[in-house]
């Protein structure tokens, strides 16, 4: 079971990324839940969502102790770094976060999501770069379901799918090539 916490500021696409992960995993017959933070803090402030992907029915949909954290901005890393389970993973958006993860009992990846996204054509694909990074680490989704996730995300703008496939691949490879 993966308990994923995605956090950033409003507009970075963390809620969408969570939906893409949940949808893609659902198409493989897995049990999924997506729980957003909601409320005034989302307006220009922080946004986060919890995604659980499991082979078995999901009990609590709340992720208090994530197995995988994606920190898209500095405040998210500060707020959630200590919550990750020992042996868990933190994927840091090193385009916006200069500091390193201070814990030694978790695996940290530093992925310049914004820079990689810009190289693919748009900074807005930073969340999709992280989509690739997440799956590169935990291999939870088959390539076909990854694609279904992108189709779901861009069902109103399918012309954006090829560019986002490239962004996904950039994130996937960045984790593979990480030390």
């Amino acid at each position: 079971m993966e308990k994923i916490l995605l956090a950033g500021f409003g507009g970075q696409g963390v809620l969408s990324l969570g939906q893409i992960l949940a949808y893609a995993a659902m198409t493989e017959g897995k049990e999924v839940s997506w729980l957003p933070s909601y409320g005034p803090e989302m307006r220009g402030g922080t946004a986060n969502c919890s995604v659980i992907i499991s082979e078995k029915p999901i009990a609590s949909p709340i992720v208090a102790r994530p197995t995988l954290l994606v920190a898209m901005n500095g405040p998210s890393l500060v707020r959630f770094e200590d919550k990750v389970v020992p042996g868990g993973v933190i994927i840091v958006n090193s385009s916006l976060i200069e500091r390193k993860v201070t814990r030694s009992d978790v695996k940290a990846y530093y992925i310049p999501a914004n820079d990689l996204a810009i190289q693919c054509g748009t900074a807005r694909a930073a969340n999709i770069v992280m989509y690739g990074a997440i799956n590169s680490h935990c291999k939870i989704l088959q390539p076909e379901s990854v694609h279904k996730g992108l189709e779901y995300a861009f069902k109103k703008k399918p012309r954006l799918i090829p560019m986002n496939e490239v962004a996904y691949r950039a994130g996937f490879e960045a984790v593979e090539q990480h030390d």
Binding site: Q19, A22, V32, S33, W34, P61, I62
Partner: peptide, 10 residues
Amino acid sequence: DGMIGQMMEP
């Protein structure tokens, strides 16, 4: 509760 309204599940 609010989570029932806001959560997504299959």
